[in-house]
Design a protein around this nucleic acid. Structure first.
Length: 582
DNA sequence: GCCGTTTTCGGCCCGACTGTTTTCAGTCG
């Protein structure tokens, strides 16, 4: 049993206990255990064998026993029983805004229904309206919520959420009397997907700020409004919350609503241990006395004996300890990028010429572009055969001659990894490239062992410099193929191969959690836009967000290196590969 | 369920908002 499956099983226990109406702290203990497992550095079996498992904070006697059973037998009778007790459809109800475990349970018991469809029907039949604790308004709200669950599954890509958040920030900043406005929440932390958008403002007239926010034409519906908070649903799908606070409270509110929840809990516990109380308005001594003056987030962290923690790292994954020791990484910034690798042109499935792509990269201040069109096996994408490769290289040589050293197009390829792990070209053709990205585009359904073996074999090929979108996931659409990713990452480290962070907002693959696992083991990455048109180059911003979440510093990113260093690295690899091939 | 330098029971982060209620429980972040 791997970490993911163990964590899911524990979290499912927590969820089912919640729906059963158990002690909320008990349910939290299971959810917490799930999080602990997901953040493990080792496989569960090793965790148990080493004897560390029962010693882990948050794992007591009961959880230790259940984890041993799960890992040992692959099953947990306790969970099986819970599943029988709680109908499956009930879990879906929790995605409906305003419907939590207590109310879901109350409806289930009173009306003896348990699916989304039944709930919808019950609302339309006015059966919720007459239930104790419910009414006409909440029935209508639940009905709208069901539609929302169906149409959007409740989460949105970072690209959608960030774009909307930035537009709203601009809108609010332009209002007279608005002194400060910032994006908070998971968008600020650059999560790969977000449920909603959070904004915090300081305004001379909160009314005016909320009026502008609620009245904007992008707003579909105003779902709540009080003295300090206004909630809306946007036409584009996400909901957005605006909070208006005083100048003095601003940094506290910003920090609070940036989260993550786990980070906040840990920070509050730290404050408590220092006899301080932290909330979204202030930091105050428990025993009275003057609260420390905090004009910005950095001052709040400083008052808690910590260095300022970049929002992307606030996930309670060790960042607080680093901040305490003042050893937080100097994270990659978008301005650190010197070029991009892995882009397509009209030679395969891109929509722009090589020159147009190169010019677009130049306009963005970069000095090189790794052109990696598809190889022949990707026939659906117009993959190049060996003859077309030679033609393309002539075209690139001509273009580079015109750039006269001011800009360089690298002769790359996104070579298909065939089902058995072999590359899509023979050594003669492979030897022609400056840069090789190896990706899987077919046979996603292979068994986990075979898929792992396949990609490990590709990583071990001396021609390969970078692994492309290593899991093949499409966010909110398709899970990645079954693979032992950490085995692949370990192989990449062993062979000095980089693993890309595919920056397409639908991919963000490699996942930041796995990248964070690889970094202390020596993993090198590359922020690859995988652009199929010039504007696609701007997707690197999402990849940079992902890299920052993982704690990536510029020295670990191929395309943050100056061209000379990159070429030296690629040249050495190619020389070794050529020697092996003969 | 877990935890413990006030330790084996009693607390576990905490405040705003909503919709239902005449004083509050549930949800959310």
């Amino acid at each position: 049993m791997d970490r993911e499956r163990l964590a899911s099983a524990l979290e499912e226990c927590g969820l089912l206990l919640e729906l059963k109406g158990e002690n909320p702290f008990k349910t939290r203990a299971y959810a917490n255990a799930g999080r602990i497992v997901r953040a493990l550095e080792v496989e569960p079996a090793e965790w148990i064998e080493s004897g560390d498992m029962p010693k882990t904070k948050g794992i007591g006697k009961a959880l230790a026993e259940k984890i041993e059973t799960l890992v040992g037998t692959g099953e947990l009778p306790y969970l099986e029983d819970l599943r029988l007790e709680v109908p499956e459809g009930l879990r879906e109800w929790l995605k409906i805004p305003g419907l939590g475990p207590k109310k879901a349970r109350a409806i289930h018991l009173a009306l003896e229904i348990s699916t989304l469809g039944e709930l919808e029907y019950a609302c339309k039949e006015n059966r919720l309206r007459d239930l104790e604790g419910f009414g006409k308004t909440s029935q209508a709200k639940i009905l709208r919520g069901i539609e929302r669950v169906r149409s959007h599954a409740g989460r949105f890509l970072q690209s959608v959420a960030l774009e909307e958040a930035e537009r709203l920030r601009t809108l609010l900043a332009a209002i007279e009397g608005v002194r400060r406005v910032e994006i908070a929440g998971s968008v600020r932390r650059r999560m790969e997907t977000s449920k909603d958008i959070d904004l915090v403002v300081v305004a001379e007239s909160p009314e005016a700020a909320m009026d502008a926010f609620a009245g904007d034409e992008s707003v579909h519906e105003v779902t709540g409004r009080g003295d300090t908070k206004c909630s809306v649903v946007l036409k584009s799908g996400p909901s957005a919350d605006l909070r208006v606070v005083s100048e003095a409270a601003f940094p506290f509110t910003l920090m609070y609503f940036t989260g993550s929840k786990d980070h906040n809990v840990a920070i509050r516990a730290r404050a408590q241990s220092m006899r301080l109380k932290l909330n979204e308005y202030a930091l105050e001594p428990v025993d009275g006395g003057d609260p420390p003056v905090c004009g910005d987030e950095a001052a709040i962290y400083a008052a808690l004996g910590l260095a300022w923690i970049p929002p992307e790292l606030r996930e309670d994954r060790g960042e607080i300890e680093l901040a305490e020791a003042n050893t937080l990484p100097a994270l990659l910034e978008i301005g650190d990028l010197r070029g991009v690798l892995h882009c397509h042109s009209s030679w395969s499935d891109g929509s722009a010429t090589i020159e147009e792509m190169a010019e677009a990269a130049r306009e963005r201040g970069w000095s090189y572009l790794g052109l990696c069109d598809h190889s022949q096996a990707a026939a659906y994408a117009g993959g190049l055969d060996p003859a077309r490769v030679i033609e393309q290289h002539v075209a690139i040589d001509e273009l580079n001659a015109r750039f006269a050293g001011e800009f360089t197009v690298l002769k790359g390829i996104e070579v298909d990894v065939l089902a058995d792990g072999a590359l899509d070209f023979d050594d003669e053709t492979m030897a022609r490239f400056d840069l090789v990205v190896a990706s899987i585009h077919s046979r996603f359904g292979l068994p986990r062992d075979e898929q792992t073996k396949r990609l490990r074999r590709a990583v071990a090929s001396p021609w390969v410099d970078v692994v492309g979108h290593p899991t093949g996931r499409l966010l909110l659409a398709r899970d990645g193929y079954a693979i032992d990713l950490r085995a692949v990452l370990s192989a990449a480290v062993e062979h000095g191969v980089a693993v890309e962070v595919n920056a397409h907002p639908r991919r963000l693959d490699l996942d930041w959690r796995e990248l964070a696992w690889g970094l202390p083991r020596g993993l090198v990455t590359s922020i690859n836009p995988d652009a199929h048109r010039p504007e696609g180059l701007d997707d690197v911003r999402y990849g940079v967000g992902t890299a920052r979440k993982a704690g990536v510093t510029p020295d670990r990113v191929l395309n943050a290196w100056p061209l000379a260093r990159l070429q030296e690295w690629l040249g050495e690899r190619k020389a070794r590969a050529a020697a092996t091939a003969t």
